[in-house]
Amino acid sequence: MTQPAFLDSPQGRRLAYVATPGTGPTVVFLSGYKSDMDGTKAVHLEAWARSRGRAFLRFDYSGHGRSGGRFEAGCIGDWADDAQAVLEALTDGPVILVGSSMGGWIASMMTQRLGRVAGFVGIASAPDFTEDGFWASFDESQRATLLNDGQVALPSDYGDPYIVTRRLIEDGRSHLVLRSPLPMPFPVRLLQGSADTAVSTDTLLRLFDHIDSPDLQMTLVKGVDHRFSDPASLALIEAAIDQVSPA
């Protein structure tokens, strides 16, 4: 396992990252909720970028992977600030953002904050999931538990239960991106599997409808799940990065 370097963010959070030098716009991978930079997609794309001499950056949000902090203490605003800190400190010039699941939401936010995004690839993007996924699906008992106890535990297909905090829900409402147009004046590719049980195709379509891009394409792959990390799916991600990269 590659040993990371560390960046202290302006908010005082210690963030782990691995940067691969190279040419062209830096490809930056933004991982998902309770995921990290050592996942299959991030590591595969790093090797792919290295083989092509392309600059690549992967990192962990606070409370994730090898970064400092507790996962349960974080929220969308914190993790977006982490992403912004990493992008501003560790990249120069144009960047290609590759966001997986929650990383697709945070990457969407970065396209509005950073003026040098050259392309965006969303993989099973999960914008606004705290409100339209978690909160919308809670029954009255779960909502009461969240408000009274400050958190509620949800079962997960990927290991330990998700601890959803009141802060996560309330902060998420300040960062929703599907309530107004999303100007992205660069190429965008959205990828998702039809067997994804974590993010609905309705979310994919809503994001597609909200993005204002001169070159926007959506690919729905039959039978692929939320991980989107089988060899054929990884090849699709590689192709999408090439498609959104400046000639």
Rank of each mutant, 00 (worst) to 15 (best):
A73R: 13
T40V: 15
G68F: 06
P214M: 11
A89M: 03
S200Q: 03
S62P: 00
W135S: 05
A124G: 15
T91I: 04
A118G: 12
Y33K: 07
P127M: 13
L191N: 04
A16E: 00
L45G: 03
P181K: 08
G193N: 10
P181V: 14
D149T: 12
G68S: 06
A80G: 08
H210V: 15
D128R: 10
D128K: 13
D38L: 13
S180N: 11
V28W: 04
D149E: 13
L220N: 12
Q151F: 14
V117P: 02
R189Q: 06
D212C: 09
M110R: 05
A126C: 10
A85K: 07
D60P: 01
L207A: 11
L30P: 01
D149V: 10
C75T: 12
F71S: 08
T145H: 11
T145E: 13
G193H: 08
D8G: 01
P187W: 05
G77T: 12
F208Q: 15
D171Y: 09
V244Q: 05
I96Q: 02
F129S: 06
S229I: 12
R66M: 06
Q142E: 06
A19V: 03
S67Q: 03
V221D: 12
M109W: 01
R50F: 01
G115M: 08
Q192Y: 03
M102W: 02
E46Y: 03
D38W: 09
E170Y: 09
L147Q: 15
V117K: 06
S213D: 08
G77V: 10
E140R: 07
D81P: 03
P185D: 05
R206Y: 06
C75A: 14
M102H: 02
A136R: 11
E46S: 09
Y162G: 02
V121A: 13
V95A: 10
D230E: 12
Y162C: 01
T20A: 13
R167M: 12
L204T: 14
L147E: 14
S67A: 06
L236N: 02
F120E: 00
L15E: 00
L15F: 01
D209F: 08
R54Q: 09
I76W: 13
D60S: 05
V27C: 06
L146R: 11
A16M: 00
V121C: 07
G104L: 00
I123A: 08
I237S: 02
T165N: 11
E140Q: 05
V95Y: 06
R167T: 12
T219V: 14
R167F: 08
P181D: 13
Y61R: 00
I96M: 04
K222P: 10
A107T: 01
I106S: 00
V95D: 03
L216E: 10
G115P: 07
L45N: 04
D139Q: 04
P246M: 04
A153Q: 13
L204K: 07
A144Q: 14
N148D: 15
P25L: 04
S213H: 10
L191P: 02
F129Q: 04
V224L: 11
G223F: 09
T130Y: 11
R13F: 01
L15N: 02
D242W: 07
W135I: 04
L146H: 13
D196Q: 10
T165K: 11
G150V: 14
I163M: 14
L7F: 01
L45S: 03
K41S: 15
A240M: 03
S125H: 10
